[in-house]
Design a binder for these strands. Structure first.
Lengths: 193, 193
DNA sequence: CGAATATGAATGAACAATCATTCATTTAAT
DNA sequence: ATTAAATGAATGATTGTTCATTCATATTCG
C-alpha cells in the first residue's frame, strides 16, 4: 500500500471552504483560494468531491445536521418547550462564540436560493418541530393551533437571525450576555404563547 | 444633441440583475447574462455604474429604501404599533405577491456578508424602530425595556424570513392567506409584549 | 533485516470556458 | 453635420476541472 490519506488536508479544505464562502459568498470562493488557504494542491479536493457544488452542499448538510441532532437529543431529555428552546438557543450562542464561521456558513447558505437543505433533512426537522409543538401544548406553554412553519420560524430561524445580526454588528455591539440569550428564548416563547 | 438615453434599457438591466442575483447569487450573476436578458450590449451598464458591485449595491439600497420609506410613512399616520406592523407586514406580503423578485433580492443580499446596508440607511432604520418602540410603550402594547435590535428582529427580520420560507416552499405551501398574514403580526407583537 | 516494488496519495501545469471591464466603432436623433 | 447613445469584439485575468506525473510509504521478497 501507499501512504495513508492525510485527514488533516481534508479538514483544512473544509475549514478553508467555510471561511471563504462566508467571506466572499459561494461564487466568490474560488477553488484556487480554497486550496491555497488549505495548503493543498488545487486539484486535490476532486479526489473526495466531484465538484465545488458537492463540496459545499455536503459541508452544509453536515453542519445543519449538528444542530438538528442537538435538537433531537434535547427532545429526549427536556420536559418543556421552554427548556428545549433555552438549551437550543444556548447551543446556537455557543456556536457563535466558539465556531462563528460555522454558524455564519449555515446562515449564508440557508438564504441562498441555490442551496436547499436536503429533503430528508427537511422531513427530519419537520418531525422534530412537531414534537416541540406537542410538548408545548401538553404543558400549556404554547397556544393550541400552531403550524410547523410558525414554530420553525421562532424556534430555529429567529435565533439564528438574532445571532448573525449581532455578529455583523448591525447595531454596533458584537458580544452578548447570558441575559440577552434568555431574552431571545423569552421572545420566541412569547410569540407562540 | 444626439438621441436621448433609453430609460427602458436601464430599467431592464435592473430587472435582469435582480432576477439573476436571486437565481444564481451575486457571483453567479454574470454581466454577460444580465446584458443578454436585458437585451442590451454587454458593456452598456458601465455607462451608469462603475462596476458590477456598484450596480448591485445601489439596487439593494433603493429596494431597502422602499421598505424603509413605507415604514416612515406608516409612523406618520398610524397610532398603534399593532397598526404599524399590520400595515408593514401587509406591504411585505404584497411585495411577495406582486414583485417576488424584489423581496427575494433583498432577502438574498441582506444575508450576504459582503453586502451591508449603508450606514446612513442603518441609522435611519434605527431611528424608525425607536419610534415604533415609543408608540408601543405609550400604548401599553409593548413591554418597557426592548432594545432596537430586538424590535428590529421581530418587526423587520421575522416577517421577511417568514415570507421567504413560504416562497421557497420549505414546508410545501407557496401561497398565503390574509389570516396567515395577521398571524405573523400577532406573533411579532406577542413576542415583544 | 534491508532493499525492491507496488500502490495510491498528492501535485500542479494545462485546459477550455467564462469572467468583468474597456473602448474603438457604429447608429440615430438633433 | 454634430453629438452622444449604444454596441459588441477584444482583453487579460480568473474560473472549475482534469490528468499525467511525482513522491512517500506499506508490503513483499531475497
Amino acid at each position: 500500500m501507499a501512504r495513508l490519506i492525510d485527514e488533516g488536508k481534508i479538514r483544512r479544505i473544509k475549514e478553508a471552504t467555510i471561511q471563504l464562502v462566508v467571506q466572499n459568498g459561494y461564487g466568490g470562493a474560488a477553488i484556487s483560494s480554497i486550496a491555497k488557504r488549505a495548503g493543498v494542491a488545487e486539484g486535490y479536493l476532486y479526489r473526495f468531491y466531484s465538484s465545488k457544488q458537492e463540496l459545499v452542499t455536503e459541508l452544509l448538510y453536515s453542519k445543519v445536521a449538528q444542530i438538528v441532532e442537538k435538537l433531537e437529543s434535547l427532545l429526549e431529555t427536556c420536559t418543556s418547550t421552554t427548556e428545549v428552546m433555552g438549551q437550543l438557543i444556548g447551543e446556537l450562542f455557543r456556536m457563535g462564540i466558539e465556531t462563528p464561521g460555522e454558524i455564519k456558513f449555515i446562515y449564508v447558505l440557508m438564504h441562498d436560493y441555490n442551496f436547499q437543505v436536503s429533503d430528508l433533512q427537511r422531513q427530519h426537522i419537520k418531525g422534530l418541530i412537531e414534537k416541540v409543538i406537542k410538548i408545548g401544548i401538553a404543558n400549556g406553554e404554547l397556544k393550541n393551533k400552531i403550524t410547523v412553519e410558525e414554530a420553525y420560524g421562532m424556534v430555529i430561524i429567529y435565533p439564528i437571525e438574532f445571532i448573525n445580526l449581532r455578529m455583523k454588528g448591525f447595531f454596533g455591539t458584537k458580544e452578548w450576555t447570558t441575559e440577552e440569550q434568555n431574552r431571545v428564548v423569552e421572545f420566541s416563547i412569547n410569540a407562540l404563547k
